[in-house]
C-alpha cells in the first residue's frame, strides 16, 4: 500500500442533517462492504487463532490457548525479535539516510523543488517488487557491486552479498526510504525561513540550529516516517524471500508459511493476531505524535 497516510477527520459540520431513511439506504453498500470485508475477516481471524488443526491440516473448532502458548516458544520469540530488530535497523537507517535528503529538498529554491520532488516520487511509485528484483543481479558474486568494490581494492575477492542478512537490509531500506523522506519533507517544508535566520542571527551555528530548531520542528514528520517504515517492514516477507533466499525468516515469512506449506491456519492466525496487536500498539504510540496525513 504505497503512499499513505491517513486522515480520519470528519469535515467541519455546518448545517448538515443526520441521514434519514434514504440516507441510511445510500450508506448501506459502504457499511455492508466494511462489515463483510474489514470487520468480519478480522473477527474470523481472531476466532481461528483459538482453534486447532487436525492431522490433515483442517481447522477444528475447539477453543484453546495452545497457539498463543506456542508463540511463546523461544523459536518464535526469536523470529519476532529478529523481525523487530531488522525493522528497527531499517527505520534508523532510513531516518539517517533520508533526513538530509528531505531537508535539502524542502529548503531548495521553490523553482527547483517540483523537479526534485518528482525525482523522489518516481522510485516511490515503481513497484517495490521490481525495485527489489533490480538489486538481485547487482548483489550477486559476479554482480556490479562486488566488481566495483574489488576494483577499488576494498575487497580481495568477489563477494556474494545476495542471500545474506546485509542484502535483506539493503532491500528493506531501498523499499522503504521514500516513505521516510516524504513525511519529513512535508514538515520541513513548512518551517519559516525567518526562524532559521533568527536562530543564526542570535549566534547559534548551523549545527546548533539544526539540532535545536529544525529537528524539533520536523518531529511530526519523523514520527510519521517511522510509522510508515517500521510497521510495514516488520511484516514484509517478499523482500526477505527474494534477497535473503529464505534464510532470513521474519514474522511475515512464518505467517505465510503457516498458510502455505505448513498448513496450520490456526497457528498462522494466532501469529497474525499477535502481529496485529503489535501493529496497533506501535500505531497508537506513533500516530498521536506524528503528522499522519494525506500526501
Amino acid at each position: 500500500m504505497a503512499g499513505t497516510i491517513v486522515a480520519t477527520d470528519t469535515p467541519a459540520a455546518g448545517g448538515r442533517k443526520p441521514p434519514g431513511r434514504a440516507g441510511w439506504l445510500l450508506l448501506a453498500p459502504l457499511l455492508a462492504w466494511l462489515a463483510c470485508f474489514v470487520v468480519a475477516p478480522t473477527a474470523i481471524l481472531f476466532a481461528y487463532s483459538f482453534c486447532q488443526r487436525d492431522e490433515l491440516g483442517f481447522v477444528v473448532w475447539e477453543f484453546s490457548w495452545e497457539n498463543y502458548a506456542r508463540i511463546a516458544d523461544p523459536v518464535y520469540l526469536k523470529i519476532f525479535g529478529r523481525s523487530l530488530w531488522y525493522a528497527g535497523l531499517t527505520t534508523v537507517l532510513c531516518l539517517l539516510i533520508g533526513y538530509p535528503v528531505a531537508y535539502y529538498i524542502a529548503r531548495a529554491p521553490a523553482s527547483r523543488r517540483p523537479t526534485l520532488l518528482m525525482l523522489l516520487m518516481i522510485p516511490f511509485w515503481i513497484s517495490f517488487l521490481l525495485r527489489t528484483y533490480a538489486w538481485i543481479s547487482l548483489l550477486k558474486a559476479d554482480g556490479l557491486v562486488s566488481a566495483t568494490l574489488e576494483m577499488l581494492h576494498l575487497i580481495p575477492e568477489p563477494l556474494e552479498i545476495l542471500y545474506k542478512p546485509a542484502a535483506v537490509l539493503i532491500g528493506l531500506v531501498y523499499t522503504y526510504l521514500p516513505f521516510m523522506i516524504l513525511p519529513i519533507y512535508t514538515s520541513a517544508e513548512k518551517i519559516e525561513n525567518s526562524l532559521i535566520e533568527a536562530s543564526m542571527n542570535l549566534g547559534a551555528g548551523p549545527w546548533r540550529t539544526l539540532a535545536h530548531v529544525i529537528l524539533p520542528l520536523t518531529k511530526p514528520g519523523i514520527f510519521a516516517g517511522v510509522l510508515l517504515v517500521f510497521v510495514p517492514s516488520i511484516g514484509m516477507f517478499a523482500v526477505n524471500d527474494l534477497m535473503g533466499g529464505g534464510k532470513v525468516d521474519m514474522i511475515g515469512n512464518v505467517i505465510q508459511n503457516q498458510f502455505g506449506q505448513a498448513r496450520d491456519w490456526p497457528f498462522g492466525a494466532a501469529l497474525g493476531i499477535t502481529f496485529l496487536a503489535l501493529f496497533v500498539i506501535s500505531f497508537w504510540f506513533l500516530h498521536d505524535r506524528g503528522e499522519v496525513k494525506r500526501t
Partner: peptide, 14 residues
C-alpha cells in the same frame, strides 16, 4: 494502514 499480510490472511480465512 493495516499490514498487508494481516489483510491477506484475514480475507483468506473469511
Amino acid at each position: 494502514v493495516v499490514p498487508e499480510v494481516i489483510m491477506g490472511i484475514s480475507l483468506l480465512v473469511f
